[in-house]
Nucleic acid binder design. Structure first.
Lengths: 354, 354
DNA sequence: TTGAAAGCGCTACCAA
DNA sequence: TTGGTAGCGCTTTCAA
């Protein structure tokens, strides 16, 4: 059980100086092939890997990327985006000698403090900015901290950071369009957390799509949590002119909405069409299977990691546009019920159980 | 836009030596109150924070904890455990100047390499070992690497690491007991991934509970994914003597199982009782609401973090036993159908839609 | 109670 | 193409 080997051990073993070993492991030119081999062999034999902490001291690089997630600890479990996003990031990082540092914070104050700490302590070389909010304070903070970053989506404040984005509106338009084709006229949207840009974007894209098709959008607010989805659904189904289709801003809300509808005795999709967003794994396994709009969080992760690494290594990185979001039609949508009863107090169908 | 301040800047500002500043920030005794104040004031004014990389070099501590998750990238999104577990860990770490390093790997080879890398590079001071497997190779590897760790659950190989655990069998026994009370005699279990200890434990606890109550357990295998839950349910409901209740090893499988049952025209819970495990947020919002067994991943996270920190800082840490798992009864269970038709080819109920 | 200096493991520079 | 040496920012002796 020996101590961890250092660069000196390797240098000694290979019979060269530390400087040369450093040159070799960093792939610098100007080292003869022979000594290069010798050094590599010595390093391998000793099982030596350069200590990133020591390297950081001179290179001013942390060899780590940061992700700070602001999320209510209570509901973070029902969000399928992050785990998949992270595995996408990892698939890029694993071969590049960088690690990922993750922080989950409960409120904005802690969030901003976390970025300050990461920067002040030189813990990371750059960060991913997810869940952009209106006039997001992180953009200015990160600029001030001179911390490289990429944003998922376009910020609504001036930002020099590269942005990863995808046209999600295309998918939403496809949903609305399909619903209109099926004959729906009263189409509602349960919005996500509107403090987040993608919450309002999805809402706007929905209303725009409905208006473009000559309809009148109905919108109620939610916050992406199943609970809010359930409440919103109750509100919608309690309306005098209740909608015949509900477009939820994410899958968990849609699932909760499906449950509420079923509890009220509605048959899905005959009495009510429902769609989700984000294309979660679970959506496929519901009854009826939930129509949704694909999003591929792992792809976001890969693209964001690549872009952030490029920014860090070369000082610049282009924006990247992922393929347009695609509507994934499934059994949760159907034509609206024929016998619409605009002012009925009771559900249009008999309870399917109880 | 000045450079980051260093300990020298602070020492200069306070008119003392670097050594003293170090003593102050590390709370060492033997510093007069006066200079102590002066140093703290200088540090605050300059916005200085000690650079963990530099500290690591001398203290041999990384000020970071590691979590390596082996999970199929495709299905990681439907697992509600990790995000909540991580937020529990974070709630402990955030005040303690340590960060969390997360790695998601697709296979065992990468997993073990990741631990080796983390250790060789001194990236972390300790790691969390989750999802213990049979004869888990990580135990021996971590011991060999001399990397402190805590395990979630007891390993089935000799291990000196502290263990965090909870009696989950109590909750499972309560489920079975309640089901028996309701009159169920054919109770099935859809097991989780049996390469994982908790997959087999839950299966064993189920079969034991059923046997203890004089019944004959039915078990089919799954792997914790919704897809496997759906397949297993199809298999069970295709049996000649189909079960009247299905106990799933986690909530996502149970959700998928509910969908399959409904698709087959069964009314829940009248025609079939279903229960899940892990007490996910979503379970509450299904129709019918899914009875499950609580697990509180955030609590696991807090306990594991506390235990690991204690181990790292003091060299020893006690095992911790979390409160027994509790059955959470909900609408997805009911007495078995009266008119049992042991050899019926058709479902006992009319389809609720289609 | 304080200051000075050595050294952690590495990179980077300057000579050779 | 190589070796020697001076730091990077911090902690930790050892003296004073």
């Amino acid at each position: 059980m020996s101590k961890k080997p250092t660069i000196s051990d390797v240098a000694h073993e290979a019979g060269v100086s530390k400087g040369l070993v450093s040159f070799v492991v960093n792939g610098r030119p100007g080292v003869s092939a022979a000594t290069r081999e010798r050094v590599l062999a010595a390093a391998a034999e000793l099982g030596w890997r350069p200590n990133p902490n020591a390297r950081s001291l001179t290179t001013r690089s942390a060899y780590a990327l940061g992700l700070v997630v602001l999320r209510d600890p209570e509901i973070i479990g029902s969000d399928p985006f992050f785990p998949a996003f992270i595995s996408g990031v990892e698939s890029v990082l694993s071969d590049r000698g960088r690690v990922m540092l993750l922080s989950v914070v409960p409120d904005e104050e802690r969030e901003l403090d976390t970025y300050r700490k990461l920067a002040a302590e030189s813990r990371v070389d750059g960060v991913f900015v997810t869940d952009l909010r209106h006039r997001d304070p992180r953009i200015a903070l990160l600029a001030e901290l001179a911390l490289p970053a990429v944003t998922l989506g376009h910020a609504d404040v001036p930002s020099d950071f590269p942005v990863i984005d995808r046209d999600y509106g295309k998918g939403i338009a496809a949903v609305v369009s399909r619903l209109r084709e099926l004959g729906h006229t009263r189409i509602a949207h349960v919005a996500g957390d509107e403090r987040m840009l993608h919450g309002t974007h999805r809402r706007d894209q929905f209303t725009e799509a409905v208006r473009a098709s000559g309809g009148t959008p109905i919108v109620v607010s939610g916050d992406f949590s199943p609970d809010s989805g359930a409440q919103a659904t109750h509100a919608l189904l309690g309306m005098a002119e209740k909608p015949t289709a509900i477009v939820f801003a994410n899958d968990p809300m849609a699932m909760a909405g499906m449950a509420v509808a079923q509890e009220l005795g509605l048959r899905l999709p005959d009495d009510l069409s429902i769609t989700g967003m984000d294309g979660s794994e679970m959506s496929r396994y519901l009854f009826p299977p939930l129509a949704t709009v694909g999003n591929d969080p792992a792809e976001w992760g890969r693209a964001a990691a690549l872009s952030l690494l490029a920014l860090i290594e070369t000082g610049a990185s282009d924006d990247v546009t992922l393929p347009d979001a695609e509507f994934i039609p499934r059994g949760s949508i159907a034509p609206p019920p024929q016998a619409a009863q605009p002012s009925s107090e009771r559900p249009t169908a008999q309870p399917s159980s109880r």
